[in-house]
């Protein structure tokens, strides 16, 4: 497989890989690194690409695993300082001003969702894959995907109505 052939197979879904990585890792730089890593892994194993039934689904699964591993190692590294009785009001206010824009509000809400729901929302509502494809990528049953999706959508809507009616009701 030559370089152009490889790029032609990878091009259509490289953005999707990047967006999924960004959804999970949040930081743009880290997502770029993760995408690069995933694509380079594919490139190194380019001899086997023709054996894969669905390169796109395979890459998405790879991305998912890579990002989850990354998150796990990050959690293991970082020492968390927990202050339950201390609240910095200034920072909270600042954040609220920043997040006033409803776009970033939604990003924030999705960020707070559990990883599985994040991925399902990303793959369904943004990338518009059908349930069978998502089931293959995430190794989940379609019914489980439906449940996760429904929960995620409801949470987003609830959070949004809360912030929208904030100060009105």
């Amino acid at each position: 497989m030559t370089q152009t052939e490889f790029l032609n197979t990878v091009m259509p879904f490289k953005d999707k890989v990047f967006r999924l990585a960004k959804r999970l890792l949040v930081s743009k730089e880290e997502a770029e690194d993760a995408t690069q890593e995933v694509l380079l892994k594919l490139w190194r194993n380019k001899g086997k690409i023709s054996d894969y039934k669905n390169v796109e689904a395979f890459s998405m699964t790879m991305t998912k695993n890579f990002c989850l591993d990354k998150l796990k190692s990050k959690q293991a590294q970082n020492l968390k300082i927990v202050h339950s009785n201390y609240q910095d009001h200034k920072v909270a206010l600042q954040k609220q001003v920043e997040l006033n824009d409803s776009m970033s509000w939604i990003a924030k809400i999705i960020e707070d969702l559990p990883e599985q729901q994040k991925m399902v929302i990303q793959l369904r509502d943004i990338e518009q894959y059908d349930f069978d494809e998502i089931a293959k990528m995430l190794d989940m049953k379609p019914t489980a995907i439906r449940v996760a999706l429904s929960r995620a959508r409801k949470t987003i809507r609830e959070q949004l109505t809360k912030t929208h009616s904030y100060g009105v009701k």
Binding site: F6, D15, F18, R19, E32, T35, Q36, L40, E127
Partner: peptide, 11 residues
């Protein structure tokens, strides 16, 4: 949906 990956791949 419009966000794209712009980094160059060192192949």
């Amino acid at each position: 949906q419009q966000e794209t990956f712009t980094k160059q791949l060192p192949l």
